[in-house]
């Protein structure tokens, strides 16, 4: 790039017309060299450095959070933490077994509500023609609901369930969470069904499959991994939500299963609310338990996320 051709091949005599034939005649080749003294190059390098630094800086909180969870939460983690009930103030020991059960129960119930609604409407949305008003309105509502403040889901469940049944309950918490899980399940399932290649759908229809047969025999089997991804993401989101549970499921220091009865209509503990409650207490034991519960919660949420991701990566093709 820098040396001229004739100089590179000393055996060949230089063509006397070279100067007129040479398209680069008169070009100072040193100007083509990359140099940081040139403002354009320098600015380019500078921006690269700034952006790289900012990206790495943005990752610091993640590592800090993870490190503290392992370090502070891990210390307190023991069998007791999983099996015992939350301690009273100044009591040492104790655990959050009921909160784990509560989180799982509330999430499971929320899924029972949101999965059928989300999946069946996703099937409708995916099959609907582009000009279907109902489909496009519901799709838009789903997108808006994705950003719906979780606290307002709690306010809604408070108005609908707590005020109607006269008390805080796991069911109220589940209703609140299902509002938050619904848009994720709806939109990812629709995408999943739409991603099944059109020609597979055509093949089924071309053989005389009814719409329902096409959905159950071709579309859903091919879309299941991606639908499950959406479901896992929804569970992960639901499990981590605190605000909508604060005044729906509230909290409880007892087991969900009490003397053989499942108390779904009683206040119910959850990991997220336990963390919030204990974080603000002036007792070292409670704060340590909050960290341990946070570790457990994050591990649960991350596992759900990882399962979802790995399902998404295991594509059919």
């Amino acid at each position: 790039m820098t040396s001229d051709v004739a100089a590179a091949k000393p055996g060949i005599p230089r063509n006397p017309d070279a100067e007129t034939l040479d398209p680069f005649h008169g070009v100072d080749f040193s100007k083509l060299e990359r140099s940081l003294h040139r403002p354009r190059t320098f600015m380019s390098m500078l921006w690269t450095v700034i952006v790289s630094a900012m990206t790495l800086f943005a990752l610091i909180p993640l590592f800090s959070v993870l490190w503290l969870l392992v370090w502070r939460g891990g210390r307190k983690l023991s069998i007791a933490a999983f099996t015992q009930l939350p301690p009273a103030p100044l009591e040492q020991s104790g655990g959050f077994g009921n909160a784990i059960v509560g989180t799982l129960a509330i999430c499971g119930m929320a899924l029972l509500i949101s999965l059928p609604i989300g999946l069946l409407s996703a099937i409708f949305l995916a099959q609907a023609k582009p000009d279907n008003r109902l489909a496009s309105s519901v799709r838009f509502a789903g997108k808006v609901l994705t950003g719906f403040p979780s606290i307002l889901a709690g306010v809604f469940a408070y108005g609908v369930v707590v005020m109607a049944t006269g008390g805080y309950s796991a069911l109220a918490g589940a209703v609140a969470l299902s509002i938050l899980m619904l848009p994720t399940i709806l939109l990812t399932s629709e995408d999943a069904i739409r991603m099944v290649p059109e020609r597979m759908k055509e093949a089924a229809i071309g053989m005389g499959a009814t719409d329902t047969q096409t959905v159950w025999m071709v579309l859903l089997p091919a879309a299941v991994p991606r639908i499950l991804t959406g479901v896992m993401l929804a569970i992960a989101r639901g499990a981590g939500e605190t605000a909508p549970l604060l005044f729906t499921a509230l909290f409880s220091s007892y087991w969900l299963l009490w003397h053989g009865h499942v108390k779904l209509m009683q206040p119910t503990a959850s990991l997220a609310v336990l963390i919030y409650n204990f974080a603000g207490m002036p007792f070292a034991n409670q704060v340590e338990l909050a960290w341990a519960a946070a570790l457990v919660l994050v591990v649960m949420v991350l596992i759900a996320n990882l399962i979802g991701q790995s399902l998404a990566n295991r594509q059919v093709q």
């Binding site: 071309g206 053989m207 025999m217 071709v218 093709q317």
Partner: peptide, 30 residues
């Protein structure tokens, strides 16, 4: 009903993402 008596094969091969057997048995199940 029409399509069950008048079968179609498409430009792009379009087997379902399932086993060879299930692909052929698909119409029988329908």
């Amino acid at each position: 009903a029409v399509r069950r008596f008048i079968g179609m094969v498409f430009q792009q091969p379009n087997p379902f993402a399932t086993s060879v057997y299930n692909n052929v048995a698909f119409g029988l199940r329908l």
